[in-house]
């Protein structure tokens, strides 16, 4: 991306900035108070119909007994209050214990994947900061995993990770001789590592892309001033680059967290619909328990609990980062 001329301000401007948005109230808009709503109506109707209303319907379903017998006759499904929640959140019961296990797997997966993706993205963006021959080619190459349809990327990885015909075992066992036995990667304990590697491969380019955009907003003079002060690479990274990237990183980490925590595609395609226990992410857990048992009431209860958890984490995250941001200012 060579300095986009018509590109919107990347990091500096906030949506509410007075400088970025000159007041747009004009006599014309006052005479047509309905117009903006008419322009918004199609988007609003679609969002309501496909996202907002189903969300409330989902919350309602979580209070119903919606097993196989009631799915065909939805209106006849009995109302059971919080029974579904009691079942799926009781960690001493079988359903609750499995959900808790799946929750911890997802937490570990999310922390590792977001951390590694951020690390790789930052490393790539920082070393690609100054121009050199071949930089554009590398940038395009690094963005390719992000542009690939998720299923082709993950299917290819599942081929690499096959026990007998895959590249990974060929290199580890046959060529480097690091292991005596060919391990299984897609079943058993190793499946967690396999899932993590595939996830990082898919998501680090997004971190790279955001950080690259953020780096363009750091004035070169700041680096020159730091260099005059005798600051080496690591000092410049710590005292100039990372503090200047803070606004980008705050949003990036939150977005990556939410996407990774909800990740369904990677395990679904990698393991062919039935994730091994060590890689039983929460989305796939809810999916499988809903469509295997056809207990949509329990499935909805788990979905609602997941949503409440994500909202709570997001709220706490925003609260902490806002407070820290203010005390810095």
């Amino acid at each position: 991306m060579a300095t986009p001329t018509r590109a919107p301000a990347l990091t500096g401007a906030h949506p509410g900035d007075a400088a970025a948005r000159p007041p747009a109230v004009r006599p014309r808009t006052r005479r047509r108070p309905l117009l903006p709503y008419l322009l918004l109506a199609p988007a609003l109707v679609l969002e309501l119909a496909i996202h907002v209303i189903p969300m409330f319907v989902g919350a309602f379903m979580s209070l119903q007994e919606l097993t196989r017998f009631h799915l065909r006759d939805w209106s006849g499904a009995p109302f059971v209050g919080l029974d579904n929640f009691r079942d799926v959140l009781d960690v001493d019961g079988p359903a609750g214990a499995q959900l808790l296990h799946s929750f911890w797997v997802t937490v570990a997966y999310t922390i590792a994947s977001v951390g590694l993706s951020w690390l790789l993205g930052t490393a790539a963006a920082v070393v690609l900061q100054r121009p050199f021959r071949g930089r554009a080619v590398l940038r395009a190459l690094f963005l390719t995993p992000y542009a690939l349809p998720v299923y082709t990327a993950v299917i290819t990885w599942s081929f690499l990770l096959q026990r007998d015909t895959g590249l990974v075992n060929h290199v580890l066992v046959d060529q480097l001789g690091l292991l005596d036995e060919r391990p299984f990667w897609l079943i058993g304990e190793n499946s967690f590592v396999a899932l993590l590697v595939v996830s990082v491969w898919r998501s680090w380019p997004f971190a790279f892309l955001c950080i690259m955009a953020g780096l363009q907003n750091i004035p070169t003079e700041m680096y020159e001033a730091a260099a005059i002060d005798g600051a080496g690479f690591w000092r410049r990274l710590r005292d100039v680059t990372l503090p200047m990237l803070r606004p980008v990183n705050l949003v990036l980490v939150l977005v990556l967290f939410l996407w990774t925590f909800n990740d369904f595609n990677t395990p679904y395609v990698l393991f062919g619909g039935s994730a091994p226990e060590a890689a039983d992410l929460i989305s796939i857990h809810i999916y499988r328990s809903s469509f295997e048992t056809w207990d949509f009431g329990a499935g909805s209860a788990m979905s609602v609990a997941l949503l409440l958890f994500l909202l709570a984490v997001t709220a706490v995250y925003l609260l902490i980062t806002n407070r820290r941001g203010r005390s810095h200012a």
Binding site: A43, E47, I50, H51, V52, P54, M55, V57, G58, M61, L71, W74, V255, L258, F261, N262, F264, S283, I286, Y287, S290, F296, G299, S300, S303, V304, L306, L307, L310, T314
Partner: peptide, 21 residues
Amino acid sequence: VTVLSTQMFPGILFLLPLFLI
């Protein structure tokens, strides 16, 4: 805010209700 936050919600949340609807 509403439109952007729907982007962040888990897809699985809409799947069961939309399926039923």
